[in-house]
Amino acid sequence: MSRAAPILTVLLAIVVIWYLAAIGMNAQWAQDQAARAGTELSTQALIADTMTQDRPVLPTPHQVAVGLWDGLAGQAITSKRSLVWHGWVTLAATLAGFGIGSAAGILLAIGIVHDRAMDQSVMPWAVASQTVPILAIAPMVIVVFASAGVTGLLPKAIISAWLSFFPVLVGMVKGLRTPDAMQLDLMRSWSASRAQIFWRLRLPSAMPYLFASLKVAIAASLVGAIVGELPAGATSGLGARLLSGSYYGQTIQIWSALFTAAALAAILVAAVALVERITLRRMGLAR
């Protein structure tokens, strides 16, 4: 209870601020409507109205909750209005992008650590790739793939991988370089090959770094997948829900999709953290 109290206090504060903001932001529209109808709104009626609009500037927490519930549980999961279905579409692209991105990051890191030329040439390009706004890249990737006849999951996964390879690359370069001079000298004194040094010393040493960067990468993958859905004609996925919501002023729909994405990110990061705990404990690195 003593640990739950501060968390609940913060949560309660956020909800209260949210309600106050909703009343303030939605009041203008309510008053415009009343003025147009030639009526005068009492304070009580005004507050009630700000909480029940169809397209509020800022929906109240309970409206979002209802929208979320309806999207998650109120629809058949094959329905185009189901957040489960849209979430699944995004999740598939996220996981594919995470796989591609992590593999690319790990392979590039291995190259950088073992090859002088790669060490000096790859990193500037990797950094440059991350300074280009992903929103500018995404449509080009979609268009290029579409012209080759590839649509759907793969182009989204590529955009997702674009964001997720970088943290893995940086973490793995650092991790593969953690063994100190003495440990490398020991290996040398045994005339160990590079492959033996990699599998027996560098890779195990890098595991804590790998998992730390995988947690960042999987969240970035989700962002990439959602961004990849925006220019794709917006038919499926959480990104599509966000886009169509903004087209039609369906703010409740936008917020519901946002919360679904946030929950999805939390679940994915927690899943990586679980694998991390099991792996490191089995390796004897966590106790």
């Binding site: 003495m182 440990q183 020991l186 160990a192 010393l201 195990p204 004897g284």
Partner: peptide, 24 residues
């Protein structure tokens, strides 16, 4: 060669550490 620090791998048992050069 024995260095000032033991340089044992934390992810290997003592037996696993001693077996390391033998594996290599």
């Amino acid at each position: 060669y024995v260095f000032q620090a033991p340089g044992l791998y934390p992810w290997r048992t003592i037996a696993g550490n001693i077996a390391l050069p033998l594996e290599i």
